[in-house]
Design a protein around this nucleic acid. Structure first.
Lengths: 212, 212
DNA sequence: CAGTGGTCTAGACCACAGG
DNA sequence: CTGTGGTCTAGACCACTGA
C-alpha cells in the first residue's frame, strides 16, 4: 500500500488523519503494518466473516461467507417477558415485551434461528407494523429512537431442542452454537436482548484478532 | 472520568496522546465516551472475560471469570503433522511438528483441553525442554523468536468424544465449544495452530463488542 | 543510507450536551 | 453559554527496515 505520507498528500489531509484511519483498519486485522517497511493488505481477510467480535451481525456474516442471505420474519408478538429476559433487560416482573422471531438463510438453507426481545415500553407509540427483516440496530433506531453503544454476548454449545431442529431442519441432538446477547446504550441501560441458535455445519463462525 | 484536557495536563502530554489511549480503551468497550458530556467507565466490564475476540487467551479468560487458573502440561511430543495441520501451517507432507497438549483448570475443575502444533523446523536449535505452561505467544517468542501479528479462529459446537470426556471429566455427548485457531506473523506466514475443547458449563465465553 | 511507521506536540475549529 | 469529545493540521523526532 502507499505510505502514510503519500496517502496524506493524495487525499490532501494531514498524516495524523491518515493514521487514525489506518489504525482502525489495523485493529480489525484488515491491514498489516511494519515499522520501517510499509503497510500491507491482509490477503487472508477474505476468509474471515467476523471482525471484532460482531458475532451477531448475521446478515453480514452469511454474505461474507459467500452465501446469499435472506431473512424470514417468523413471528412478531407481544407477550409478558420471561424471567431471564426481565433480568437481562432490568425490567419489573410482568413487563410486556415485543418478541421478534427470525430465521436467517444461507442461500436456501436455514442456518440461524434468532429471537430478539425489546421492552414494549421502549417502542415509540403508535407502533406501526415492524419490519422483521431489518437489522436489530436499525429496528432500535427506527422504532425506539435508540442507538446501540455496546453489546455483551455469551457463546455456548447447546444441543438442538425440538423446536430448533424443526425450524433449522437439522437432526435432533446436533450441537448448535447458542449466542445470547444483550445490547446497551451509552448510558449503560439495556435496550434489547436476544438468543440465537447457529448451525455451524454449513456456516463457520470465523473471526480474526490482531495485535498491533 | 477526568476530561481529556485534564488528563493531558495531569500527565503533561498533549491531548492527542491522551486521545490515542482513550480511543483504544473505547474500542475494547472499557470506557464509554459521550460527545458534549464526558468519558465514563463501563461498569459492566467486570462481567466480561474476553475483549476483542481474544478467545484463546485461556489463562486470562479463566482468571477474569473469577477462578484461579492453573495449567497442566499433559504431553510434549514430536510427531509427523496430520493433514489438517499441514494445510493450516503450509507445510510439505511428512513434516515434523511439536505437539503441546495442555489442560487448563478453573480452580480445580478442568475446563479447557488445548492442543498446539508448532512446526519443528521453526524451533530454534538446540531445543531445550519446553515449558508447557507458558502462553503460546511466549512459547513462540522464546523458542522460535517469532511474534504473532494476528490469528484466525473458528468456533464450533462439538460433542465431547471419548478422549475429551475423560480428560475434561464430563459426560459423553456433552456439547463443547471447539476453537480451532491459526497464528500468523506480520508476513502472513502461519506460525502455529491449535485446537481446543472448551467446557462452557463452568466457564462462560462472554465477550464485549462496542461501536464508537 | 533513505524511507517507513510509531510517537508526540501545540495549537485549531466543530458538534454536541448540560445547566 | 461553557465544557465536552470529535476532527484536523503542520510540523517534529525516534526506531526500525531494506537496499
Amino acid at each position: 500500500m502507499p505510505s502514510e505520507s503519500e496517502l496524506a498528500s493524495e487525499f490532501d489531509v494531514s498524516r495524523a488523519t491518515i493514521r487514525t484511519v489506518l489504525a482502525s483498519l489495523a485493529s480489525e486485522g484488515l491491514i498489516l503494518r511494519k515499522q520501517g517497511d510499509g503497510t500491507y493488505l491482509n490477503p487472508l481477510i477474505r476468509e474471515v466473516n467476523t471482525h471484532l467480535g460482531g458475532v451477531w451481525e448475521f446478515r453480514r456474516l452469511i454474505e461474507s461467507s459467500g452465501y446469499k442471505a435472506t431473512i424470514k420474519a417468523l413471528t412478531t408478538e407481544t407477550r409478558v417477558a420471561q424471567a431471564s429476559e426481565l433480568s437481562a433487560l432490568g425490567l419489573p416482573p410482568g413487563s410486556q415485551a415485543l418478541v421478534l422471531r427470525r430465521l436467517f438463510f444461507a442461500d436456501l438453507k436455514p442456518v440461524i434461528l434468532a429471537t430478539n426481545i425489546i421492552p414494549y415500553a421502549m417502542i415509540i407509540q403508535p407502533a406501526g407494523p415492524i419490519d422483521g427483516t431489518l437489522d436489530i440496530r436499525e429496528i432500535l433506531r427506527r422504532y425506539c429512537n435508540k442507538k446501540i453503544a455496546f453489546a455483551i454476548s455469551d457463546v455456548q454449545a447447546r444441543l438442538a431442542n425440538g423446536e430448533a431442529t424443526e425450524i433449522l431442519q437439522c437432526e435432533p441432538g446436533l450441537p448448535l452454537l447458542q449466542i445470547s446477547i444483550t445490547f446497551y446504550d451509552q448510558d449503560n441501560h439495556p435496550l434489547a436482548c436476544g438468543q440465537s441458535y447457529y448451525d455451524d455445519t454449513t456456516l463457520r463462525l470465523r473471526l480474526v484478532q490482531s495485535w498491533g
